[in-house]
């Protein structure tokens, strides 16, 4: 009798894991992405924010060197995170014998991409127009909105994560002098904590 119910519970858990892609994507990926974000924030602080106070609503045109450095840090951080996430996910899905590219993956990627690309373009335009200070709050807000958007296709924890990121983004806009610290908390610390929570909850 007990055996049957234990089996039922096992079956339910297995089916939930197998059917939702992000379970294999979120735990370790969140931790890795968080760590890379922290390194990126530190590099940006050392190279740019330390010498120039651009964290404000003033219009400041960065020197060409600073502009290149900032874009470079952004691109390198983003690309390394994505590559490592893809690597971790492929490994995990292989272990579970799932196809890496299916309806679910496609849906998640499209829903992530729409707010992320819109936000990315807005940030690029702001940067070129000299509003570099607004980049940190805006990237947080759009990241949060992208997560909220994708949460309906995956774990409901993603909704809380998205809302936290949105809130931190708005907070960073209000307390713009502290936006680098808030950004590090949002992209670094919160992602890492989220990764550990999901990892322990769904193991």
């Amino acid at each position: 009798m007990k055996e049957k119910y234990l089996n039922d519970i096992k079956e339910i858990k297995e089916m939930m894991n197998k059917s939702s892609r992000f379970v294999s994507l979120s735990g370790p990926s969140g931790i890795v992405a968080g760590i890379i974000a922290l390194i990126g924030a530190f590099a940006a602080h050392q190279l740019i924010f330390k010498e120039t106070t651009i964290l404000g609503f003033d219009r400041i045109f960065l020197s060409e060197e600073q502009l290149i450095n900032l874009v470079l840090i952004g691109v390198v951080t983003l690309v390394t995170s994505i590559l490592l996430i893809i690597l971790l996910t492929t490994r995990e899905t292989k272990k579970r014998n799932q196809p890496i590219w299916d309806q679910q993956t496609k849906r998640i990627l499209i829903n992530l991409a729409i707010p992320l690309f819109t936000g990315g373009f807005i940030c690029l335009i702001l940067l070129l127009q000299g509003f570099a200070g607004l980049l940190l709050p805006f990237t947080l807000v759009f990241y949060g909105l992208a997560l909220v958007n994708v949460s309906k296709y995956t774990l409901h924890e993603m909704l809380s994560l998205g809302l936290i990121e949105c809130f931190l983004g708005l907070l960073a806009l209000v307390l713009i002098e502290y936006s680098l610290i808030i950004w590090s908390v949002g992209f670094g610390l919160v992602n890492i904590i989220y990764g550990f929570v999901v990892k322990t909850k769904y193991k």
Partner: peptide
């Protein structure tokens, strides 16, 4: 039933799934 339990488990963690996805899963 095991199949119905499986269908429900998959549908509560996904917004929606189509027939073939459910078939592959189960």
């Amino acid at each position: 039933n095991r199949v119905r339990l499986g269908i429900m488990s998959a549908l509560v963690v996904n917004d929606h799934l189509d027939f073939n996805a459910l078939k592959d899963l189960l």
